[in-house]
């Protein structure tokens, strides 16, 4: 399936006249089995696509929530190989929800680009976002992913001007991820009025759907983004549910998955409630 699964999902959403809700969670957070329970519950909780983080010891673009999620995940022994194992298990029950891996380059380089591309495709990964791999450095990884039809999804940001945008959208497929604020994940939020022109610019340059992320924490913010973009990505707010539940009950993970999924329902409902008449683009 791979990139075709992403294209099919966005085509379906377009036909229905609605935006996607993309849920980000960290593989292995707070434990491998609990994170699998979260992952398999996300489609029913309204996630149209899933971004699954794989942990890295030095997540330079993350704010505190995802930094901590990364550390919790590493502490329970999570690796990139085990992350692919989670995806395989997820695919046993779900053949239609696109799944994007998101993380940093070094674990992928350590795994080996060609082997990663093969194993990711075999596991049912549809796309990959590598935060610290700009287009200038992406050649070898893009070559490997092209072989197995896994999308290399690019990031555009408020610092990406028109000239640079042409570089960013080369060799990309699936969708483009627009980082709505200059900053780390889960920190500041941008106003919808500021995001809208950027989304249209990226959409025009890429010819692809545009997902907006960074700083979207509430159902209201997610709905506002759903009016102006093709997808709203929420990560830190979901991950914070894990942290809050662990604070309440340090040892047991019971109840963690249901808290995260309840939060996902509130966010996805807000996105789904936006009617096609309310949407731009």
């Amino acid at each position: 399936m791979t990139v075709a699964r992403i294209d099919a999902r966005f085509a379906k959403l377009k036909a229905e006249g609605r935006a996607a809700f993309i849920a980000y969670v960290m593989a292995g957070d707070p434990g491998i089995e609990t994170s699998f329970d979260i992952l398999k519950g996300l489609p029913a909780a309204g996630a149209d696509l899933i971004e699954l983080g794989f942990p890295f010891s030095d997540p330079m673009a993350e704010g505190v929530p995802i930094q901590k999620a990364s550390l919790r995940s590493l502490k329970c022994g999570m690796t990139l190989a085990k992350t692919l194992g989670l995806v395989s298990r997820f695919r046993e029950a779900d053949q239609t929800t696109p799944l994007i891996l998101m993380g940093y380059l070094n674990p992928v380089m350590s795994y080996g680009f060609a082997r990663f591309a093969e194993d990711a495709a075999a596991a049912g990964v549809d796309g990959v976002i590598i935060v610290d791999c700009p287009p200038e450095e992406a050649g070898p990884l893009a070559d490997a992913l092209d072989e197995t039809k896994v999308a290399l999804i690019r990031l555009a940001t408020p610092t990406t001007d028109d000239a640079r945008l042409q570089v960013v959208v080369q060799r990309t497929s699936g969708f483009v991820y627009y980082v709505s604020v200059a900053g780390v994940t889960g920190a500041n939020s941008a106003a919808a009025a500021d995001i809208s022109p950027a989304v249209q610019r990226v959409r025009k340059a890429s010819g692809l759907p545009v997902a907006v992320g960074f700083g979207i924490r509430t159902p209201e913010q997610a709905a506002a983004v759903a009016k102006i973009a093709d997808a709203a990505v929420v990560g830190s707010a979901l991950v914070d549910e894990i942290a809050a539940e662990l604070d309440r009950n340090l040892s047991a993970h019971e109840g963690v998955a249901s808290k995260v999924l309840a939060k996902a329902v509130s966010l996805s409902s807000a996105v789904a409630a936006v009617t096609s008449a309310e949407r731009i683009g």
């Binding site: 700009p134 200038e136 450095e137 690019r154 990031l155 940001t157 610092t159 990406t160």
Partner: peptide, 12 residues
């Protein structure tokens, strides 16, 4: 070497 940074930092 190279320039392995987040896209936000690339223009910088």
């Amino acid at each position: 070497g190279g320039r392995y940074v987040a896209e936000t930092l690339m223009p910088l």
